[in-house]
Design a protein around this nucleic acid. Structure first.
Lengths: 109, 109
DNA sequence: TTTTACTACTTTGCGATACAAGGTATTAAA
DNA sequence: TTTAATACCTTGTATCGCAAAGTAGTAAAA
């Protein structure tokens, strides 16, 4: 996993947003505006200016792919779905996240 | 807690380092080089170029204070300790952290 | 038919963080 | 007096999250 091994720890520090997005997309594909709503429902606020560049970044890394789909109302949507590489990354992130929780528990006893 | 209310959520996303540092200093005062070692022992790698500006920032926010102390071997040390304001911030961070864990659990079910 | 409203995707510029790398200064031992 | 060890500090760079503004497709109202 050269995508994540080197800097996954520092990435995790900077934000769990990637982790959240991959988690949602691991269950079902979605498009940006919908993703924003799903994350908001889970109490993780994210705005357009954050999520669009992030989705593009993840797509360029090969952890996401997308396809256009017509909408019955409004412009076409870019549906993102997780790739095999993305699923592997997600498993790695699970590990990192659980380690982070343990680290905090250790420090905050 | 005007220090954190506005952007604590986004801060938490960016890094749990502040949380870790306050957690350590909540148990006992410490100086930068020692803090780095304590954090490393808990699996949270941090380097000088990160921690010095961060400690100064926290001190300027009034959540930490420091005093100089002579060392038996080497130059004097800047011992940081948490303030009342810092302890309140730490309690708020506990809350944010626990909410973050719940959020992730929700998304990653 | 033109305007308005809504939805959706994109880009730009800013502030803040983490870090690599290099610098300053004190103490003690070789 | 040079070297090693310890400790604090600063500079420059990359990247993230976000506010704000822009582009564009669709449909309903005027």
């Amino acid at each position: 996993m050269e995508v994540i091994t080197d800097n996954s720890r520092s990435q995790m520090r900077k934000g769990v947003l990637e982790y959240c997005i991959l988690s949602v997309l691991d269950r079902k594909e979605s498009y940006a505006s919908s993703l924003i709503e799903e994350l908001k429902a889970a109490n993780m606020i994210v705005v357009e200016g954050t999520i669009y560049p992030l989705l593009i970044r993840l797509k360029n890394q090969g952890v996401l792919s997308y396809r256009w789909e017509e909408s019955t109302q409004g412009p076409p949507r870019k549906y993102y779905c997780i790739t095999d590489k993305g699923r592997m990354m997600l498993l790695q992130m699970d590990k990192e996240w659980n380690e982070m929780i343990k680290t905090i528990e250790t420090l905050r006893k």
